[in-house]
Write a protein that binds this DNA or RNA. Structure first.
Lengths: 201, 201
DNA sequence: ACCTGAACACCGTTCAAGT
DNA sequence: ACCTGAACACCGTTCAAGT
């Protein structure tokens, strides 16, 4: 036993995150464990504690990769031609598609339901922020450029679409498939914005 | 060891569910285990396997109690005077209050994020249905009495409010308190319905 | 028939001891 | 300095054996 020095700290971290992503993807989050990740990369479990605070910390890093992939998925498939409400509806569609296609990893994003007082890591919150920012930008025209309003509206829409997707994919609204969920999300986006702009005039 | 027959099967089941509710309430879902529930009621863990299929089955029964409490919480606090949109907005408020007040149990409701193909128990789905039914009934006037439309709109609204509540309470939209979350949910309900009825005319 | 306790195959986490 | 393996305190689940 003892030092091997096969990999740098940084390499180790990357290997573990990659292995974790694969483990969740292949076998679902229920089968995830820090011990399995260690086995997958050929190290002992203890070693991962040199590199991550604990199991939660590793999961947050895995989730961070998933958020990057999600952002990428949404942005690259977002037709630049689309404007305004249509663009936001397309984003909703992409979110639901991603959640369906990468279901285990998307689930992992929300596994950490902690007591109210527990906090998410700061760097993780920043990453979430940049997802919200995409919608905020698209919303500016509807709120006369007021960034605070855009932020609020973005929360309503992301929250709303996420909720429909979440209850839908976990079978809590019946047997609805992704197509219906997209329809519901589109309905939410379209009518909410329509109601909002109506009221302002 | 051996038979005690202190309690009937039914009593045992009720004791376990009650103990589970308390355990989650007091120490959070992370600290829940079927072994702790067994200890709490003075039986061995094995005994609970005579009465529940497995740990998941016990959790579903605990969640069932939570859904009853939620329905009760919403209905008893729902001012009978309120009509239409105002009544639905009040429901959203109550949902968020409940999720905040009984946060651990509310969290437990959504812990079971399983692979897409796993199914929730039939009796549990029926219970969820009766929650949706409350909103559907309130929505009928807005959709010219069309029950299918009411069902769709109810999914959008429950989903939407749940999503705002879920992302909000788990700190995924920032540091927003329940008051702001209620405002967001109200905005969703009001403007969505407004947009919806506008479009129909 | 009902219940227990031990057993099995796992967890996350810590840390003395080895190189 | 880095890494391991054993240890600790847990899990969910099964089942032979006891009353």
């Amino acid at each position: 036993m003892g030092r091997r020095n096969d990999h740098t700290r940084k390499e180790l971290k990357e290997m573990a995150i990659k292995a974790g992503v694969e483990l969740i993807e292949e076998r679902g989050f229920q089968n995830f464990s820090i011990r399995k990740v260690a086995a997958k990369i050929g190290y002992s479990a203890g070693t991962l504690y040199n590199v991550f605070e604990n199991s939660d910390d590793l999961v947050f890093h895995i989730n961070s990769v998933t958020l990057d992939d999600l952002q990428n998925y949404i942005e690259t498939k977002l037709d630049q031609e689309l404007k305004g409400v249509e663009a936001i509806k397309r984003m909703g569609d992409r979110y639901i598609e991603f959640a369906h296609e990468y279901n285990s990893r998307w689930n992992a994003l929300f596994e950490y339901r902690r007591p109210l007082d527990s906090e998410l890591p700061q760097w993780y919150l920043l990453k979430l922020n940049s997802l919200f920012a995409i919608v905020e930008k698209l919303l500016l025209p509807f709120v006369h450029g007021d960034i605070e309003s855009a932020k609020r509206v973005a929360k309503v829409l992301w929250g709303g679409v996420h909720g429909i997707c979440s209850l839908g994919l976990t079978q809590r609204m019946g047997q609805d498939g992704t197509e219906l969920l997209k329809t519901l999300a589109n309905s939410l986006i379209e009518n909410y914005i329509s109601g909002l702009t109506q009221a302002k005039e």
